[in-house]
């Protein structure tokens, strides 16, 4: 069970959140290149290692939280606002 430090609410249980996927890809464009939209909707890196993720605080403030999590160890290195820049630990 994860515990996630919501930047608005503080340290909360995973049960309050809904995982919303990869936060390293930009949302698909509304117009323009279909290939770019395909990549944004379907292509994911699926790394073993540090991963930027969206965790939606549905049972709390209902904000999307950016989480930097290690997919191997589940360690959470940092959390932030949607536009935060989270750097993996050296």
């Amino acid at each position: 069970m994860h515990r996630i430090d919501c930047p608005w609410c503080g340290l909360r249980d995973e049960a309050e959140f809904q995982y919303q996927g990869d936060a390293s890809v930009a949302p698909p464009p509304l117009e323009g290149d279909i290939d770019e939209a395909m990549a944004a909707v379907y292509l994911r890196e699926n790394p073993r290692g540090w991963h930027q993720e969206w965790w939606h605080h549905v049972a709390g403030c209902r904000q999307y939280v950016r989480v930097l999590r290690h997919t191997g160890s589940h360690e959470v290195a940092a959390t932030g606002w949607p536009d935060s820049r989270l750097e993996p630990p050296a």
Partner: peptide
């Protein structure tokens, strides 16, 4: 609701 919140907060801040 979640779809709208995503677009309001993340896609089009």
């Amino acid at each position: 609701l979640a779809h709208m919140e995503y677009h309001a907060q993340v896609a089009w801040p």
